[in-house]
Amino acid sequence: MLRSMFSGISGMKGFQTQLDTVGNNIANVNTSGYKKGRTTFQDMMSQTVAGASAPTDIRGGINAQQVGLGSQVGSIDNIHTQGNRQTTDRTLDLALEGDGMFIFATGIDDDNFDLADANLEYSRAGNMYLDQEGYIVNSNGQYLVGSQEGTEEGQGERIQIPENAASFSIQGNGVVNYIDENGDTQEAGQITLANFSNPGGLEKVGSNMYRSSVNDGMQGEDGIPDLIEPESGGVASIVSGSLEMSNVDLAEEFTDMITAQRGFQANTRIITTSDEILQELVNLKR
């Protein structure tokens, strides 16, 4: 069989994957905190027809002769660039301006909890809510991890707004304040962030959430993130009343979609052309 036919098949598979990635990006164009994906390709191992030879006293060197065997998906990257900020004027909508991610936890049942025992996930989506007990949670019911004065290393803190609070606010440095029934300002807690030197190494788990991997470069030890206060330690500041939207560029996605479509179409032509050649070989017997 012709090698070009199998090369065409490999190209079709790669462009199918690229179209899957583009389709997912377009589907999430309005998803808060979504980070777009990108597919890259690399060539497969080539078949060496003749090896290279070094020059001699009477003849120059000869390059190797190799026939490529197609392409394959090299990587599917998560591009963690800053998304546009959308103003909502809702206090519990939080956008991050800069690096870092919100930390969310489940599997805890007390005010001071061990980060090593909690199920931790990370996100840039800042649409927060208050549960029945006044704790700040996300749309999945996961607790927003914070800290308070005296919180020990390796420990986290849930942030609770008392029932009798007249109002509350969230500062750029993550401090959550509320007005008590006497009209005095009290501090409910401090929102903390996690930072990653390689956020592209995080693994998507759905629902706008990521989990840590062995290649994300998380600041911390033994899989436990350092709780970094916003506006310090090289992490973002918090903008209350805003949401970070998806970083998907529709014009770019449509261009990639057209490129993938034409690439897929061209590879199908390779297969049909190879089939016509095989048909001609079969007809020689006639």
Rank of each mutant, 00 (worst) to 15 (best):
L284M: 14
A54D: 11
D114A: 09
G60K: 10
S53Q: 07
G68N: 06
V239E: 04
F168G: 07
F104M: 15
L69H: 02
N215W: 10
M218I: 11
Y34L: 00
F102K: 08
Q66D: 08
Q265M: 00
G107A: 10
F15R: 03
F104A: 13
Q279C: 01
N28L: 10
N84R: 11
A50G: 03
Q82E: 04
E276N: 05
Q148N: 09
E253F: 02
S207N: 13
T39F: 08
M45A: 05
T268H: 05
R38T: 14
T81W: 08
N78Q: 11
V137M: 08
L19Y: 03
T272N: 01
I170F: 12
R90G: 08
S207A: 13
Q160W: 15
R286N: 11
G201Q: 01
I79P: 02
F168L: 10
D43G: 11
L284H: 09
L281Q: 14
T106F: 02
L227C: 05
S123R: 02
S237A: 12
G74T: 00
A54K: 13
D109I: 07
I191D: 07
I271G: 00
F254H: 05
K36A: 15
G60D: 10
E133V: 08
T185C: 07
T259E: 12
I224S: 03
G201P: 01
T151P: 09
I26Q: 02
T91K: 04
A125F: 05
S4V: 15
N177E: 15
R3D: 12
L284C: 07
S197P: 04
S10P: 03
K204T: 14
E253S: 07
V205H: 07
T272V: 06
D111G: 06
K204Y: 10
G134F: 14
L94F: 10
G11F: 03
L193I: 13
E229I: 10
Q261T: 13
R124W: 08
L193R: 12
S4D: 13
L69K: 06
V22H: 03
R59D: 04
V205W: 06
A125H: 08
D99Y: 10
E203D: 12
G223W: 08
Q72M: 13
H80F: 15
F104V: 15
M101H: 11
M257G: 13
Q186A: 15
G11W: 06
K35S: 06
Q72H: 10
M101C: 12
S4M: 07
G200M: 04
E153I: 11
F15I: 03
I270N: 12
S242K: 04
Q16D: 05
I191A: 05
R158G: 14
S169T: 05
L130R: 01
V248Y: 07
T268Y: 03
K204G: 13
M209N: 02
K285D: 09
G183S: 15
E252D: 14
G70Q: 09
S75C: 02
G183K: 14
L94K: 07
K35W: 03
N28D: 07
R211T: 11
N63G: 00
N138F: 14
E152A: 13
A188Y: 10
F168W: 11
K35C: 04
N164L: 06
V175P: 04
D249Y: 02
I238N: 00
N63V: 01
L94Y: 09
G156C: 14
S169K: 06
I136K: 04
T272R: 04
G61H: 07
D57P: 02
V73G: 00
D275V: 01
D93G: 14
L92F: 15
Q148A: 15
D275M: 09
D89P: 00
G263L: 01
